[in-house]
Design a protein around this nucleic acid. Structure first.
Lengths: 206, 206, 206, 206
DNA sequence: CATGAATGAGGATTCATTCAT
DNA sequence: TATGAATGAATCCTCATTCAT
């Protein structure tokens, strides 16, 4: 079962990725339940049965997608360096970075993920525990520090990051819901959003 | 077929609502595809077949939920009166109103809706056309006016409402994803959000 | 249950006939199985439930149709008088009579009957016992007599009537199968058929 | 999808035939509508689902039966050679041939076919167009020729073949309706029928 | 490992029948 | 009696999963 042959390992990993790519695409298009193993297999260009050599069952495909997401996510958990530089600048950079990470495939992953997490309690808990929770915990810590140092003016370092990430998430969802404006002007969104977060809508009071 | 007997009408409407309530609950819990007609029937306390006396098929249940949503939504399409009063005050009031409209059942409806719309192209297009599109169109018009009159300082009346509604939507999704903080402190969110929208995070520059 | 009020009786019989008419029509169009009680009720202009006040169940509708057929059939069991007149003339008259009995409704009854009898063993046995069998028995008797008296030249009074009635039945079936020629020229068929039966195709041998 | 592997092809065709055999049997016994896929599957000795690997749906089974019939039918479209030989002899031979083609399975096919065609408009039109119509067209042509050459004495080459084929069809139906005489003496029918067609019932007039 | 035919449990839907009004 | 809403058994069909090749 578990070989140690490094070439074998490579092949297996490649095949797993090929299947997960197909699954992501198909799940995004039709949703987890409506998508069939046959769909995934056809999209991956392999036979139905082959999928079961790499994944226990259909649910494992979903978890596999989540897993890959986690792995990529972890790379950009870099709230850190904020201290050194101007907070506005950092915010800008951070947000842009998040947006840039959203490849077309990234959107599909979000699409699958949100849709499924909303209606699958198990997955929801898993995802909250593994991703959302830790992210918020980290964010809270930094917002706390920044607020203390007077870098930002929020008095609620718990809700603030939720509002910001909510904005990000909501924009993605709105785009996924088919808003053509967001699709077309997606590049302008990070800047706009940063501005928004920093300064709000209100007229300067002078 | 279509009787005019008002008592009959009442009964039919009541039964339809009973079924839609059950469907909303079940769809929110398990998602549209995983939910079975038997689930809905059991939850509604009726027989499977009865559902088909009121709805063509399972999909019609989904559309029925959407329809009821539209009907309630239309009541609060009141961007209007903003002109008369202070824009900040209006924003506060408007946002609070939107939040208050979110009964527990309201959350379930969102849960069903978002999850399904994300993976159901037909429904997505329908919903965008009937709800999202018109709402944005209206919002754009008002933002435009407010910006012209100097009430708000955005220079982009197209993206701005998307960012704000995205924030709202994103917060709902985050809560639906199980964030306990948002659930617990949901009452504080409208104020916080209003503030945020108006003033942003940035320290006043004096 | 069983009233003796003659007016009641009349009404009941009328309603039964109304239902059977509708059933005949619907069964002919869609076949017994595909036809629904709702179809029959709608065609009869009454409610579904009402049918069950007059017939035990759906099958009883079929038997009711058969029953009415038997009652009309019995009127023309008049092989008799053949003796008195020229056999050719009699044949002509008999065949014409059979054809004339075929009202449009009569075709529908045949359509229902044949289709159902072919695939319903119980009904088939019932029908053979009650109608086909007795008819052949009678026919055999007369053919026997005619042959003995030299009125016809068949030496097989058992098969002969089967061939003739088969011809009749087959022409009906062919017409029911949608042959436009037979539909259009149906009036000419009796004569043609009589001739055929009497003289066959063969050239006279002089 | 469509492999060219000849062994695969063989297996597929064999399985299709296995299913169609079962379907023919079951449909003949219970009729198309009353027969269930489970019935067919059990009779074929396979699982329900397997049927759907070979046929789109239940209706396709019916069409499949029809298709096989067409293929066998086409072999004996041999009106031709009549010219060379004595017409009586040819008629005899032709009719015998048709009767011999009626294997036990052939009867079942007729049973299914007639019963269903009578109550299924779509199938009826399909069958008329593909089988009955063309057959009559061919027959008309030959009867016309024979009549012109004085081989037969009919003056109506349009109705004549209908009467003859009607006789054949009617005899089959009568037998299918359960007549024990026809079942027992089926072998004698072709001769009797030929005679009948050629000479009719009438006493020779000398 | 790869394949894809076979399996059969599960779910949407239909419809004969019942029964309260 | 007439009605037609409610019922739930029955049936078609889908599809995750298995397994022989």
């Amino acid at each position: 079962m578990t070989t140690n042959d490094p070439i074998q390992e490579q092949l297996i990993r490649a095949r797993r990725n090929q299947i997960l790519d197909a699954a992501t695409k198909v799940f995004a298009e039709k949703g987890f339940s409506r998508a069939t193993i046959k769909d995934v297999a056809r999209t991956a260009g392999i036979a139905d049965g082959t999928i079961y050599n790499y994944f226990e069952n259909k649910t494992a495909l979903m978890l596999g997608i989540l897993d890959r997401l986690n792995q990529t996510e972890q790379r950009d958990q870099d709230f850190a360096e904020a201290e050194s530089i101007n907070i506005q600048e950092w915010g800008e950079r951070y947000i842009k970075q998040r947006f840039e990470a959203l490849s077309p495939e990234g959107f599909q992953i979000f699409q699958v993920l949100i849709a499924e997490v909303l209606v699958n309690k198990e997955l929801r808990e898993l995802y909250y525990q593994q991703v959302i929770g830790p992210t918020f915990a980290l964010a809270e810590k930094y917002f706390q520090q920044w607020a203390e140092r007077g870098l930002i003016k929020t008095d609620d370092p718990i809700l603030a990051p939720r509002i910001i990430s909510g904005m990000f998430l909501g924009l993605i969802v709105t785009r996924l819901m088919g808003d053509p404006v967001l699709e077309e002007r997606w590049d302008e969104v990070p800047n706009m959003m940063t501005n928004f977060i920093m300064k709000g809508l209100e007229q300067d009071s002078e």
